[in-house]
Design a protein around this nucleic acid. Structure first.
Lengths: 339, 339
DNA sequence: GTGAAAGCGCTAACAT
DNA sequence: ATGTTAGCGCTTTCAC
């Protein structure tokens, strides 16, 4: 660190800049903000003084004066190490940055209480909008906020007991397509490995899949339904167990990226692997030849940011829901016939 | 949105809470902050009033009064959609949250000017510390800040013309191991596909690899060196081109996760693929059987956050450098013999 | 145990 | 074109 002791203590304020430039506080403010009605020579003198002192605007003071609302947008989500969340976050950040807004992120660790604390912390910081990929189930505590002008947008899961904008994936539709895709390839004994059924997206995916089976008059899937599978290891074990059944399922549908990873691990090295379709696309799925229910995660973030943006700009009106469509990306694993 | 028009406009302030509770401003402040010297009954009355009004502390005002420094730590990095950056960000956030700090993230789009703008924006917001995974090469503009008490930590790439804490990967060591690993399997014609050579981590990886080759007296790699390969598509093309040479290389070393992805795409479906080692571990590398130079990205974030934390707590002293070690994770692709 | 006054650094409103 | 005054919402003296 350079030893610049003299200035180490405190940052210079606008008052000091003004004093050095020999002008009033307000003139200094005008000059640095490039407002009109400042003589060019005065402006230059002020800016020189600012540079000399190493002055930097105090955004906190500005924001307080301008109405105590920041240029920050909060995102509370699951762990960014999960590519689903990070892809969404990336889409959000990119959109916000276009509008001069910054993104604060916090991980709820899939804990409803922590989620609530983080939301409170963001609100204290006077975020302009709050984006939530919820973990908790009750969001009524947010209802006062919505009415106080902090817009919320929910992603991936609709808010509970609260009307608010949200961006969802067509979970039921995507899962139904997956089911139909496997049926069309001739499968009947189709296993579904799902995460916690209490989570809305999982519910939708389960329902969609079941709908496809019912419509085809197929009930051979029923012994192979597994829910409450929440991590990769558990998914791997579950798929191994499914494949050791007699008769074994000839196809597997996994309802999110973690579970698909587990299934791929379980199936590694199998001479005659079952067919597989996973919900959520992922890196290298093309190399692995894994058929997936794909959807645009980055667009999801972008749309959510856009909704927030519009509310920030004063848009009123009823809560809106945007549904991100899905499509089957066939890469081989979902097209394997029953053996 | 619930139609709660009356309160939609403005948030209640502490003054209003105090008025409703029939106490002075200061007493209200004490009560809500749970400071000593407040009669229990008074405290309860104030808190009731706060609940009734839907009061929420204005963190901006508090921060201004307390010294204009926020509870925010900034991270400027590449796109969070890249698992390397998101893993690091996740490690940082987790560590900061333990200490009541929040993470603001912004993507520099690998553009030095944008990076500088984002850094400025963060500093205006009075972040407590600034973490940078640099894209630009000149960081001298930050030197005034360092001396003004905003700690910086650089990740992955050392700062240029500036002494600051940083957390680096043992790039040269990891790449050298990769080279030795391939040599030990009997390879001589080893291709290296590298990213922009001007970036320090790439330089280190290139140097480490070359050192391994020199030490073994092997120069058969030289025709197969490719640098300035910056994205997946380019990597895929480059590897295809390498494999069509006569004689073709029998092994490939890719110097980051993007390039490894490209190589895997290029090698997809090959009956006799060359050996492959990639720098950076990745999801599903186990399923694909890809040997990698692994390192703990989450630990990298954690260490960086820790360094920042210590500086925030007043630690002074010379700039420190932490080096994250690497290790070869053998999964098959790097152990294939030359054909 | 409680309150009055001052002020953090800036910008808005109103002079001049 | 420039300056003066007030005040954002809170915490910090210092007094009672």
């Amino acid at each position: 660190m350079p030893a610049d002791d003299a200035s180490a203590a405190r940052r210079p304020t606008l008052t000091e800049v003004a004093a050095l430039a020999g002008v009033s506080l307000k003139t200094a403010s005008r000059a640095l903000n490039r407002e009109p009605n400042v003589a060019p020579s005065t402006g230059a003198r002020v800016r020189d003084a600012a540079d000399l002192l190493g002055y930097r605007l105090n955004g906190i003071a500005r924001e307080l004066r301008r109405g105590a609302t920041s240029a920050l947008v909060g995102l509370v989500s699951g762990d960014l190490a999960n590519p689903f969340y990070s892809a969404v976050a990336s889409g959000i950040e990119r959109e916000l940055r276009q509008h001069g807004l910054l993104l604060i992120t916090a991980n709820n660790d899939e804990d409803a209480d922590l989620e609530r604390n983080l939301v409170e912390a963001f609100l204290e910081r006077r975020v302009r909008a709050l984006l939530v990929i919820p973990s908790g189930n009750d969001h009524e505590y947010l209802s006062v906020e919505g009415s106080r002008g902090v817009p919320f947008v929910f992603l991936d899961r609709p808010p509970d007991r609260l009307a608010a904008d949200c961006v969802l994936i067509d979970n039921a539709g995507g899962a139904q397509s997956a089911g139909e895709h496997l049926l069309a390839a001739g499968h009947r004994r189709i296993a579904m490995v799902a995460d916690l059924a209490r989570m809305a997206p999982q519910r939708g995916r389960i329902d969609g899949f079941v709908r496809a089976m019912r419509a085809a008059g197929n009930d051979a899937w029923e012994p192979y339904l597994r829910t409450e599978v929440h991590d990769v290891r558990h998914a791997e074990r579950t798929v191994k167990e499914l494949l050791s059944l007699e008769p074994a399922p000839t196809a597997i549908f996994t309802t999110n990226n973690r579970l698909t990873t587990g299934a791929l691990r379980a199936m590694r090295g199998l001479a005659e692997p079952p067919a597989l379709i996973g919900f959520d696309d992922f890196d290298l799925a093309d190399v692995l030849g894994t058929t997936v229910v794909a959807h645009d995660m980055s667009a999801m973030g972008r749309e959510a940011a856009r909704l927030a943006q519009e509310r920030i700009n004063g848009h009123t009106g009823p809560a809106r829901t945007i549904v991100i469509s899905t499509s089957i990306t066939a890469r081989g694993s979902g097209e394997r016939p029953p053996r």
